[in-house]
Simulated assay, not measured.
Amino acid sequence: MTDERIRRIKMPKWGLSMTSGTITDWLVAEGDEITDGTELAEIDTDKIAGTLESPEEGVLRGVVVAAGESAPVGGTIAIVAPAEVPDAEVEAAVAEAKEQLASGAVEEAAGPVTGEVEVGGRNLSYATMGDGPDVVVLVHGFGGDKNSWLFVQEPLAEGRTVHALDLPGHGSSTKDVGDGGLDELAGAVIGFLDALGVERAHLVGHSLGGAVVTAAAARTPDRVRSLTLVAPAGYGTEANADYLRGFVEASTRRELKPHLRALFADESQVTRQLVDDLLKFKRIDGVQDCLRALLGTLLDGDKQAIDAASLLAGVAVPTAVVWGAQDQVLPVADPSAFGEGVQIRVVEGAGHMVHMENPAAIREAVESLLG
């Protein structure tokens, strides 16, 4: 019988389309003590690179998949166990895991479960992970979709229910944003909660999504337990208008890729797959009209048009803010825009897509508000 203290670290499923990942670097070595949340390895997916955080505590006793090697989703990549577990048992577990990988007999990890609800005559698509009493709703930014949370949703879903929502006009949701106004988008989030029967939720919003969840909280404060704002729009006047307009109008790889580099501190994150996926999205009927409508909501000339700060002033829920220090799209706002008592963390080495470049910072911010 296998010692129950032997725990298996598996290749995660970070998105609906992810089937495998490549270990590009191990950040810990065999014999190292690890805890829940320890950064274990850098993993390359078909979308983007990310850092795997440990879901286990103990000692890293065996590496099954070496740096440079790939494994299918759900495959064991390392063994964790207390130091007192005999080496022979750990070696047997490593050998078993390697045999499973070689034979292809790997049970795929459960990924997000997708669904659709109708809100205001539109179908809204969403992906859900976990099943717990606390409900977290993740809302992406301008031009994004539910998959932008791929590195955040899984770790947050431990003991919780976490929904990643496609706003109107984005992802797999209906390509119709109405007038494109902030109130329209906030109404979609509130309608989503209604459709799922969620009385109160922790709302997390990135960029435009940050302004949207702020507006939702201002409209229905009794429905919101906390706000986590990730590089949110509407908390200052400065914006990279050239990026926003360039993203909307770009129709080829050559035109789009230079603009996407502004999203990350590490420009190598702009992979061919990322560019191709965004071009595919932008070519869907109705998308350009939606993006242009939303651009009118975001910008007044070359300045931000949204004033989310005044909305937040009337919201009395625990709030945290996370911003990438190297954000080239929306500069880090003055802390006074958020009022007193708001946690603000500026993350070095991260740009506008801080939830992709440092997902641990987002997880920590959300969990700090769960109480």
Rank of each mutant, 00 (worst) to 15 (best):
D3L: 09
R8I: 05
R8W: 15
I9L: 15
I9F: 13
P12V: 07
K13M: 09
G15N: 13
D25P: 00
W26C: 03
G31A: 12
T35V: 11
D36P: 00
A41D: 01
E42G: 05
T45F: 09
I48K: 07
L52H: 06
E53N: 04
G58C: 06
L60G: 02
G62Q: 07
V65P: 00
A66Y: 13
S70T: 12
A71R: 11
P72L: 14
G74H: 05
I77V: 10
I79Y: 13
V85L: 02
V90P: 00
E91R: 06
E91V: 08
E96H: 12
K98L: 11
Q100F: 13
L101A: 05
E108H: 08
A109D: 05
P112S: 14
E116Y: 14
V117W: 10
E118L: 05
V119E: 08
G120N: 06
G121Q: 06
S125I: 05
A127L: 03
D131E: 15
P133N: 14
V135Y: 07
V135N: 01
V137F: 09
L138Q: 06
V139P: 00
G141Y: 09
G141I: 11
F142G: 00
G144V: 13
L150P: 00
V152T: 13
A157F: 14
E158W: 05
R160N: 05
V162H: 03
V162P: 01
A164N: 02
A164G: 01
L165W: 09
P168E: 07
D176L: 12
D176M: 11
V177T: 09
D179A: 07
G181L: 08
G181C: 08
L185F: 13
A186M: 08
I190V: 14
I190Q: 05
G191T: 10
F192V: 04
A195M: 11
L196R: 10
V198F: 14
G205D: 02
G205M: 06
G205N: 01
G205T: 02
L208E: 00
L208Y: 01
G210I: 11
A211E: 03
V212G: 01
A215P: 00
A217P: 02
A218Q: 01
R219M: 12
D222S: 15
V230N: 00
G236I: 02
E238D: 15
A241L: 01
Y243H: 14
Y243Q: 03
F247Q: 03
F247W: 12
F247D: 01
V248Q: 00
S251H: 11
S251Q: 13
L256M: 09
K257S: 10
R261W: 06
A265Y: 15
R272V: 11
V275M: 01
D276L: 13
R283I: 03
D285I: 08
D285G: 10
R292L: 13
L299E: 08
G301K: 11
D307G: 03
S310W: 11
S310V: 12
G314V: 09
A316T: 07
V317E: 05
T319H: 08
V321A: 02
V321K: 02
W323G: 01
A325H: 06
Q326W: 07
Q328V: 03
V332C: 08
G339V: 04
G339R: 08
I344R: 10
V346K: 03
M353Y: 13
M353T: 04
V354K: 07
H355W: 11
H355V: 03
N358I: 02
R363S: 02
E364V: 12
E367D: 14
L369Y: 09
L370P: 00
